[in-house]
């Protein structure tokens, strides 16, 4: 059963990444150089939608709170994120979109994957160093306290519960996506498009 879910959900995810342009380095590059924020709008709406559905489902008792999996926040998260950002802009790929891009027949993505295996291996060997200097120590914080979960809250004394916060943030992310201009830098139509916006 779990295998069938892995196949079904994985295929849906890969299909969506391809359909929104996330496996196309041109769309990623245009987003990161601020000349066409279409992909950013898509990502913001996706996170907002997922957040509203998940926390809404939890409040209605339809979604198992135990399915949540929150990661620790530590210095390594910020530093690792900043390191990843450089490679993301250089290559136009992140781990998930890289493997999907290779599957769509992009040869450069194969080199990204081989590089990724080298990078992950290099990290594996350097892991004790990061552990020793304390960069990996942290708590699995959520913003507010989520009913039914044991994750510590970063802001435990808020008047509203963590699931309401999650829905609120989801709404805000979608509003940001709506208000975000298609082009943040330069003039004219968003880069890379013959018509002003991809067809609906």
């Amino acid at each position: 059963m779990e295998i069938a879910l892995a196949i079904g959900l994985g295929a849906l995810f890969g299909l969506m990444l391809e359909r929104i342009g996330a496996t196309d380095p041109n769309w990623v590059g245009r987003m990161l150089s601020l000349v066409n924020m279409h992909l950013m709008k898509t990502i913001l709406v996706a996170i907002g939608t997922a957040s509203i559905l998940m926390f809404g489902g939890q409040m209605l008792g339809l979604v198992e709170v135990g399915h949540m999996s929150v990661k620790e926040v530590h210095v390594g998260v910020l530093l690792g994120g900043a390191i990843l950002g450089i490679g993301w802009a250089m290559s136009g790929y992140c781990p998930g979109t890289g493997v999907c891009a290779a599957a769509t027949g992009r040869f450069d993505a194969l080199f990204f994957i081989v590089g990724g295996l080298v990078g992950a291996g290099a990290y594996a060997l350097s892991h004790p160093f990061w552990e020793n200097i304390g960069f990996l120590n942290g708590e699995k914080w959520t913003i507010g306290a989520i009913p039914g979960s044991n994750y510590p809250a970063a802001l435990p004394d808020l008047p509203i519960t963590g699931d309401v916060i999650g829905i609120g943030i989801g709404v805000v992310l979608i509003l940001v996506a709506i208000l975000l201009p298609r082009r943040l830098s330069g003039k004219g139509a968003p880069a890379g498009e013959a018509q002003p916006e991809p067809a609906e």
Binding site: H74, S91, V118, G119, Y123
Partner: peptide, 22 residues
């Protein structure tokens, strides 16, 4: 792309996740 891959996955593992997971 290769160098980007090295940097991205090193950073992702240090962070404990990537664009999808984090």
């Amino acid at each position: 792309a290769f160098l980007g891959g090295v940097i991205v996955l090193f950073g992702a593992r240090l962070a404990g996740g990537c664009t999808s997971g984090h």
